[in-house]
Design a protein around this nucleic acid. Structure first.
Lengths: 188, 188
DNA sequence: CTAGAATCGGAGTCGTGACTCCGATTCCCT
DNA sequence: AGGGAATCGGAGTCACGACTCCGATTCTAG
């Protein structure tokens, strides 16, 4: 219930710098990276990091949500492509390829006891809705199994992300993993 | 190059107790569980834990390898079933259902900078070989896509483990995830 | 049974990293 | 420009957890 007065210009700028730095640092050094490391990467003092994100957990959550936001936007943008089946396939492949870092963050949050469902219920709704639209259209077009629902597709996406990660650097193997997934999801 | 003299009887017993305790504690509390917690669960002093496993990392590795060992044994046991396709399917489903804990351990090891490939090269070979046999037989029988190889199947297995985990407690949803995977892996 | 070696237990050390505090600095309204 | 409020920086605090050390205990060879 804080009366969200607008932040001072420099404060807003710093907040953004921290968030961005945190994203890259978490992605490269892993979620175990120290807050100090992030502060340095952002060119900011530790105190500043903690003022904007009172907890490391809060910082992780913010980074996670920002990623979900971008994903949702991307999914929405694909919703009006002409070929629903193709749109679905493309977005799945894109989402999977882009998500290795999200996984680690999600794990860290879960390990910290954060209710991921609650988090997702907030901004994650955007992802859910966008995915819902893509999925329905693809199913109506007969391109995707009818027995799949959004939560299951999300579970598959998460799994595929890890699978791709486990496939290592081999481009062909990564593609094969995604291919298997898409085949499994397709109708018939 | 230590001259591995056989351990004293009580020492061997304690080692086993610690390993077992570590496995359950890591599974329930996560890999972040403190060494003290494990010592307590094993009914043993911290010193004892560190004598047998000089590092927390070493302990994680030992637990991981013991799991891989069991998995390999299970896979080998399934290698002479009459229907190769069915054997493959069943084992995949079993392996996936049993592995959520392994994932977390593997992640922790990776985060600690352990070369997972090196680890797998040691005992993991058992898994690789057993899986290789199952896979070849299933492919020869025309039950599984010919373009899959063992590393890819392992990546898929890892991914599926996470996918199942993400599917939550819903029994049907978990089954659906595995079903999609198996469909994707099947021939034609 | 007994000596001596191997093992155990757990208090204490040490390093690390999250988080706090307050003087210094920067911003923005008039 | 000027002053007061909002922010910043980063040294310092504190808790926690991995790992060490050594007297006490338990095993086993003879």
């Amino acid at each position: 219930m804080t009366a969200d007065r607008p932040l001072r210009a420099d404060a807003r700028r710093n907040r953004a710098k921290v968030l961005e730095a945190a994203e890259t640092v978490f992605a490269t050094r892993g979620t175990g990276a120290s807050t100090e490391e992030i502060a340095q990467a952002a060119g900011v003092g530790i105190g500043t990091v903690f003022r904007h994100f009172p907890t490391k957990e809060a910082l992780l959550e913010a980074v996670f949500l920002s990623r979900l936001d971008r994903l949702a936007a991307q999914l929405r943008a694909a919703a009006d492509q002409p070929d629903p089946g193709r749109a679905f396939r493309e977005q799945i492949a894109l989402a999977v390829d882009a998500s290795p870092a999200k996984n680690a963050i999600a794990d860290a949050l879960a390990a910290a006891g954060v209710e991921l469902d609650a988090v997702k219920a907030g901004v994650g709704t955007g992802v859910r809705d966008a995915l819902d639209l893509l999925l329905r259209r693809a199913q109506s077009a007969g391109a995707v199994r009818a027995d799949l629902d959004v939560p299951t597709v999300m579970a598959l996406l998460i799994g595929a992300s890890y699978g791709v990660e486990a496939a290592g650097d081999d481009r062909g193997r990564r593609a094969l993993v995604i291919n298997v997934l898409l085949d499994g999801m397709s109708a018939g």
